[in-house]
């Protein structure tokens, strides 16, 4: 609890610095600046604890390790959809598939958000424990994307039982 409080506090202080620290670090530590900064960070910390209590520790380093793959995937996603939009006839063959997810409900929202930025896939919520995934091209080879993405995100969820990955199915 104390550790996650500290982590959140540091994170929010960094956000405050990013928003207001244009005068440099020294200026941000002046008493006049701290008079605004400290209450703001405290208020944000209080709000964040109210809105999302720390049930699990944030795996910041694990999340950072995923960043390169995530950026590469979202670049590929943008290029893929731009290419389809620019073709003489838009290359769209809409289809649906479902993916049985082993993640917790919040984990599924993260999975859905990530999938929506990867090439070819778009999540549309869950139905009876299965994530509904729209694919932009039925013949685009996107069937395995959901399983791959879940396997990638699983280390963030943390639970030992949640590291198993599954493939997507039609």
């Amino acid at each position: 609890m104390a550790l996650s409080l500290l982590k959140r506090g540091i994170f929010l202080a960094l956000v405050w610095l990013a928003l207001t620290g244009e005068g440099g670090l020294a200026a941000a530590l002046e008493p006049e600046a701290l008079a605004f900064g400290l209450p703001s960070v405290m208020a944000a910390l209080w709000l964040s604890l109210r809105l999302s209590p720390p049930l699990r520790p944030w795996r910041i380093w694990r999340a950072l390790r995923l960043l390169p793959g995530f950026v590469a995937g979202s670049v590929a996603g943008g290029i893929d959809v731009a290419r389809r939009a620019l073709q003489r006839r838009p290359a769209v063959r809409s289809g649906w598939l479902t993916h049985r997810s082993h993640l917790s409900p919040p984990g599924r929202v993260v999975l859905g958000g990530a999938l929506s930025l990867m090439p070819g896939t778009l999540a549309a919520g869950c139905h009876k424990g299965r994530l509904l995934v729209h694919v932009i091209d039925r013949e685009g080879g996107f069937e395995t994307a959901a399983g791959r993405e879940e396997a990638r995100l699983a280390p963030l969820a943390g639970g030992e039982d949640e590291t198993a990955s599954t493939g997507g199915g039609a």
Binding site: V81, P90, L122
Partner: peptide, 27 residues
């Protein structure tokens, strides 16, 4: 521009969402 083009040219809500989220995010 590609995202906006996709929004206009793609045939259904879902593929338009593909264009909006992915291309605009990259833009």
């Amino acid at each position: 521009a590609a995202g906006s083009l996709g929004l206009l040219r793609f045939p259904d809500v879902f593929s338009r969402l593909h264009a909006l989220t992915k291309a605009d995010n990259l833009g």
